[in-house]
């Protein structure tokens, strides 16, 4: 039914994403399609990485570990924004475009999640993306 699934993640809070990730994995297995994990960062050094390259590497490593764990093909797509908190939504919309994903599976309103995924983010992606969006609560 779908060709590629995009799962936006927050590398700072991977523990809270399990439900969204397993939903994505379930759908990917059903259609036998790949998953792209995307995460948004700033080009300014942050708690996860000192350079954009390091951030890409961490995201790729996460994708690889998920691929091994669940037995689905998965890759990482790092997105960068000048002001990641305020521009998250635009960055994700752009990532959807660039990866060519046609289904977004996204955690929303998960407990302990920082502002990265305010309920409104998922909601806004759902209302602005031109692909299907699956919000996991």
């Amino acid at each position: 039914m779908f060709k590629k699934i995009l799962i936006p993640i927050d590398l700072n809070h991977v523990d809270t994403l399990e439900k969204a990730v397993s939903t994505g994995v379930y759908l990917a297995k059903a259609d036998n399609i790949p998953i792209v994990f995307t995460a948004v960062a700033s080009t300014v050094p942050g708690s996860l990485a000192h350079t954009p390259d390091e951030f890409r590497a961490k995201l790729d490593a996460y994708a690889a570990s998920q691929a091994a764990k669940h037995g689905v093909p998965a890759s990482g797509h790092a997105a960068f924004a000048h002001d990641p908190v305020a521009e998250l939504e635009d960055a994700l919309l752009k990532a959807i475009d660039e990866t060519g994903a046609d289904l977004v599976v996204m955690a929303t309103h998960a407990p302990k999640l920082t502002d990265y995924f305010w309920p409104s983010n998922g909601g806004r992606i759902a209302s602005h993306a031109d692909v299907s969006v699956f919000l996991v609560r």
Partner: peptide, 21 residues
């Protein structure tokens, strides 16, 4: 507008154990 940077290339990152945040 989203500032997706190209390859960063060579730079001399300081090696410190301090983790931002």
């Amino acid at each position: 507008t989203q500032g997706i940077p190209g390859p960063e290339g060579a730079a001399n990152v300081i090696d410190t154990d301090y983790e931002i945040g």
